[in-house]
């Protein structure tokens, strides 16, 4: 069986390498650190970065972007990045671990992040400020929980929607209170 040519490494950087690199940059590593971990110089990394994105654009089967998501979720286990972690506090380390092991905690923060944007905040920064969880770690958690959440929705969509609505209401009130209420709070039927 012939391998998909679109999965071939670019300048020696495999899709697993690339996915993990993206995850780690989202978690706070610099481009310099990532290039060094992959054993390449900056021009090589930047060209591979560009061309992997082009491969995803070209791929009508979505195989590459699907694999990218899977590898993104397992970035913590990638051997080239195992010694490289962004500096975080012990409290943040606990939350980062929790978001990858506690589905309800992840889902609540995912809703909180979205509602924060609806109130003019940078949702990703709010999560980072409150819990020390970087965007990269959040995205890794999203990759890890994606399939399970789809199964939950298929099994009981009403229960899923109810918990989502409850989280939304909680954080709408929180952010609205912080800014003195919503623009149309005084208008009722």
């Amino acid at each position: 069986m012939s391998e998909n040519p679109l999965l071939a490494p670019i300048h020696g950087i495999t899709l697993e390498d690339y996915s993990a690199a993206c995850a780690k940059m989202g978690s706070g590593l610099s481009e310099d650190q990532v290039a060094k971990a992959l054993g390449v110089e900056m021009p090589v990394w930047q060209e591979a970065n560009l061309l992997w994105q082009e491969r995803m654009k070209e791929d009508a089967t979505y195989q590459i972007v699907t694999l990218f998501g899977q590898h993104f979720g397992t970035a913590d286990q990638h051997p080239k990045f195992s010694n490289l972690q962004a500096v975080v506090s012990p409290e943040a380390t606990g939350y980062i671990e929790k978001i990858k092991t506690d589905k309800d905690f992840y889902q609540e923060l995912e809703v909180a992040r979205q509602v924060a944007y609806d109130y003019g905040l940078d949702g990703a920064s709010w999560i980072a400020d409150q819990y020390g969880i970087s965007l990269g770690d959040f995205q890794i958690a999203a990759s890890l929980w994606n399939e399970q959440i789809h199964r939950d929705i298929a099994a009981d969509s009403q229960k899923y929607m109810q918990s989502q609505d409850a989280y939304k209401e909680k954080y709408r009130q929180k952010f609205a209170n912080a800014q003195g209420g919503n623009v149309a709070d005084d208008i009722e039927f």
């Binding site: 944007y117 609806d118 109130y119 003019g120 905040l121 940078d122």
Partner: peptide, 8 residues
Amino acid sequence: RMLTGLTG
């Protein structure tokens, strides 16, 4: 951010 706050 301001735009998403307003559309929110």
